[in-house]
């Protein structure tokens, strides 16, 4: 929050006295939470990750400065919200995404995802996901399942062997989509947990995501309701949609692979685009899991996290209206 020049000002409740609960601190917490994930993406994808994250950071911060100036305001880059958007966008992109995908995605994320709605705190949709959706539809061949694969005929000159091995694997989501149960051991194995698999930058390691997520939960930057309900509902719906002898494995595979953990802790739980009440946020998380698995299983895309989050963001006003808490001592008026 920016300080006005008045020493005294009246705001509506709640009256918070804890000065550490500013936007800046929340955003810094999210960035700290993302550190293990970023580190893991550096480790797995090497220079690709460094390049991608750097590019997104530069373009998001410049876009924020330009768009805020266009609105006739002083850009508040120090509140770090643009950095969080940039990091999440970068972590949700394929390692191979060309530079224009990251740049256009960043500009759209800040411009159409945030500024047009009135800036930080006023956006309906998660800015990073708006940017990614635009990039996905705009440059579909650079973002499709094939983009995650190193072309078979590419010269692996500068790459070391370990990296090349990862980049030539199909992503877990593509494997899951194929419905072939041969891959289950691979999908639920250690590699997914520790991080030796192909995918978007932020999907490399579940353990890194979990460490960051738990940090946010402990700091109470993120409430438990969205992540927990999202993870559980993803598992349940994935098992339900794949009823049969492998239902449990399908559930596990859907939770462990892809962007579910990243989304549950860092994207879906964005307080701006969440319902207000705990009950509402649980509905939000369950809906998120449902649509993700629905899209993964029955749409032509292997991953459904992005569209699912945007869809649930659009439903937030309705969820809020459905879950207005009852005032204490409220008696239903007799009809």
């Amino acid at each position: 929050m920016s300080n006005t020049q008045l020493d005294l000002y009246v705001t509506s409740s709640p009256h918070l006295s804890n000065s550490k609960l500013s936007t800046r601190w929340i955003m810094l917490d999210v960035i700290i939470g993302l550190v293990p994930v970023i580190g893991m993406s550096f480790y797995v994808f090497r220079w690709y990750a460094v390049w991608q994250i750097g590019l997104c950071l530069i373009s998001c911060l410049s876009a924020e400065a330009v768009f805020e100036s266009m609105r006739g305001r002083r850009p508040h880059l120090e509140d770090c919200s643009a950095i969080v958007t940039a990091l999440i966008l970068a972590l949700s992109l394929p390692w191979s995404a060309p530079w224009y995908v990251s740049v256009v995605g960043s500009i759209v994320a800040i411009g159409l995802g945030k500024t047009v709605f009135g800036g930080l705190g006023c956006n309906i949709f998660n800015p990073a996901m708006v940017g990614r959706a635009f990039a996905m539809l705009g440059f579909s061949s650079q973002m499709a399942a094939g983009a995650y694969l190193l072309p078979a005929d590419a010269t692996i000159g500068g790459l070391d062997k370990g990296l090349a091995e990862i980049l030539t694997q199909a992503t877990p989501m593509t494997l899951l989509k194929s419905g072939n149960t041969d891959y289950f051991t691979q999908l639920i194995s250690q590699t997914a947990l520790i991080g030796q698999q192909n995918g978007s930058l932020g999907e490399a390691s579940i353990i890194a995501l979990l460490i960051g997520g738990i940090y946010l939960l402990v700091r109470k930057t993120v409430t438990w309701d969205v992540p927990v309900s999202a993870l559980i509902s993803t598992f349940v719906f994935a098992a339900l949609f794949n009823m049969g002898p492998h239902a449990f494995q399908f559930g596990m595979a859907h939770v462990i692979n892809g962007a579910i953990f990243l989304a549950a802790f860092f994207i879906a739980s964005d307080p701006v685009t969440n319902p207000i009440t705990t009950k509402g946020r649980i509905i939000f998380g369950v809906g998120f899991g449902f649509f993700t698995v629905l899209l993964r299983c029955f749409s032509s895309y292997p991953e459904g996290v992005m569209f699912s989050i945007l869809l649930m963001n659009a439903l937030v006003p309705m969820i809020n209206r459905m879950t207005i808490p009852k005032p204490v001592g409220f008696v239903k008026p007799a009809k």
Binding site: V104, V116, L137
Partner: peptide, 22 residues
Amino acid sequence: WVNCGIMILPPGAFLTLGCLMA
């Protein structure tokens, strides 16, 4: 130049119209 496919899809129409109108 890499064509931005979204612009010839329906969302592109809405986005362009909105931006130009603004």
